[in-house]
């Protein structure tokens, strides 16, 4: 297992360098000049322009710009934002907890509801529950996110007044945020109602962001379960006189989980990169919105550094998935 882990971590190295190249090149391929964008409508003298051009290192050859960047990255320095002048590293980690909190809630919702839904649908194949669940999944999967979000806001915030429309916390509360996770911080603050407010703010974004993963997981679980249920070892489990819950929920699901884990891993990777639509609609201060804003501002260091950090997160998720594979499927553990 240790060997397997080490080998897997070694493959990070080339991937990591690949990502630095792509993230560096990507923003430079886009048309637009960051200095012009910085100047805005006021414009800028040629003198000042040349000065900034030199200061930001754009007068050097692209290759040596890349190496400057790479050397910085390897020393843990992702540069400072052109716009805010703050280190990219700090900006990322002040925003990332918001994205992480939302992603975790969304994926937990999707797994907790999606797995049982898939199992129930597979066990009742072709019957009422199967049809009901699978058509709901299809609707959830096909629904445009922004429309679904607005619908929920109209019903639950507008008409019922149950949930807030946007943000992470009611303005009535103010407290320090040592972890950046609003659920934890509001709880620690000890202020009455703060935690409830945090939960209320999370509900709609979680539902919106979790809908597609929920539908995908339910469908994937169903098809994996259907395949597994026709296996000989399921017949053996039944022949032992085991109750259906144990046959379906343990013997079958454990095997069906193998392909489902892959899908969940991919989903988590996507969610960590920030849910641009969801974050925008709910004014959720996460990295999805941050990245989009930075691309519009041609904020090179932020886009480069942000992409790199997101990729590292995705790599870590993939590694976790590989380890989980080994835990669930003993056939690949030894090799």
């Amino acid at each position: 297992m240790l060997n397997f882990l080490l080998m897997r971590i070694l493959t990070f190295v080339p991937t990591f360098f690949g990502v630095t190249i792509i993230s560096f090149a990507f923003i430079r391929v886009l048309p637009g000049d960051p200095i012009v964008v910085m100047a805005g409508e006021r414009g800028m003298s040629q003198e000042r322009y040349d000065q900034l051009y030199h200061q930001l290192g754009f007068d050097k050859p692209v290759i040596s710009q890349y190496f400057d960047y790479l050397v910085g990255v390897l020393q843990g320095d992702l540069g400072n934002s052109f716009v805010t002048k703050k280190p990219v590293w700090d900006e990322f980690f002040s925003l990332f907890p918001a994205t992480l909190e939302l992603s975790i809630c969304a994926i937990v919702l999707a797994v907790v509801l999606g797995l049982p839904a898939g199992v129930i649908a597979a066990v009742n194949r072709g019957k009422f529950f199967d049809r009901l669940l699978m058509s709901s999944a299809l609707i959830g999967y096909s629904m445009p996110i922004f429309w679904w979000a607005l619908l929920l806001i109209i019903v639950f915030s507008g008409m019922a007044g149950l949930t807030p429309v946007s943000g992470r916390m009611s303005l009535m509360f103010y407290f320090d945020t040592p972890t950046g996770f609003m659920l934890i911080d509001s709880f620690l603050s000890g202020q009455k109602g703060a935690f409830v407010s945090a939960v209320k703010h999370l509900i709609l974004p979680t539902v919106v962001l979790g809908t597609i993963p929920l539908a995908v997981i339910a469908r994937q679980t169903r098809s994996a379960m259907l395949e597994v249920l026709s296996e000989d070892y399921i017949r053996t489990a039944r022949a032992k006189g085991l109750p259906p819950l144990r046959v379906n929920g343990l013997h079958a699901l454990r095997n069906a989980m193998i392909p489902v884990i892959t899908v969940i891993g991919l989903m988590v990777g996507t969610l960590l990169a920030g849910a641009i639509l969801t974050e925008t609609i709910f004014s959720w201060p996460g990295i999805g919105k941050w990245m989009v804003d930075s691309i519009f501002r041609r904020d090179y260091p932020v886009v480069q550094g942000g992409l790199l950090l997101i990729s590292v997160m995705v790599m870590i998720v993939n590694l976790t998935v590989d380890v989980l594979y080994g835990l669930i499927n003993p056939r690949i553990r030894k090799t």
Partner: peptide, 15 residues
């Protein structure tokens, strides 16, 4: 009790 034809596929590979 019953035993089956294919011993390799009649046991659950995950346990």
């Amino acid at each position: 009790a019953m035993i089956f034809q294919e011993p390799m596929s009649s046991l659950n590979p995950c346990f």
